[in-house]
Amino acid sequence: MQRALNKSRQTKSPKRQHQLKRLHRLVAKHEPIVQRGASITTSFAEIDAYFDAHVTGGVPCGGLHEVAAESAADMPAVLGFAHRLAARFMAQGADDDVLLYGQTHAACRDGGQPYAPALTAHGVSPHSLVYLDGVTVPDLLWAGEQALTCPSVACSLLTSSEAAPDFTHSRRLSLAARTAERPILLALGKTAASAATTRWRLAALPHNGWQVTLEKLRLSHDTPPPLDGWALYPSTPQNAETRHVMPLMRRAV
């Protein structure tokens, strides 16, 4: 018996390997991936339910998270979702921790600057904001890497509407974030091949909604669970407040 087992191990036929892989995948499908290190829940019930089913814990804190836009016009939705995630990451840290928010020149020009009073509604304290008002893409990535070296920066959120970092840069950031066990959020107008831990794709939906798709979830070397997409309607002051709302009568033209 022992000899047969040894022999079968030595042979490593392609067929057998294929079978093994299939079994691994089957097991992975039914068992949640075990992840070490801190993680957060997203506060969206649908996404949290998905993570509960497939991964122990939620979205990992240590790692590079990309939030990408379906089209250029969806950048505001991307940033809204990224701020929600950032707020959850901030909740993990101390009270006086800082959110480093960097934007490239193009992102500033196209999307404007964050408006501090509105941040509270998205869960971020305006006083924790340190904002980089228009930098180049290499400087943006450099700033994100610097932020990882400082324990008081709970999360950094980097916005680039025009270009995504290439694979080398993204891998460098991803490794640094995993080592530091702190998150970096990249809000992107375009995507490229990347070494991100998660990638979310956002599109705006009518009636204050977001179409959120989890495009990538890579936790160490484990097989990714089947990915999913959701239509979310986050609770925002716009949705909650109804007193002054006066819907316009839209006539057929």
Binding site: P76, L79, G80, Q113, P114, Y115, T120, Q238, E241
Partner: peptide, 9 residues
């Protein structure tokens, strides 16, 4: 004070 102000200005 954020009575429905946009996130980005």
């Amino acid at each position: 004070d954020a009575a429905a102000r946009p996130l980005f200005m």
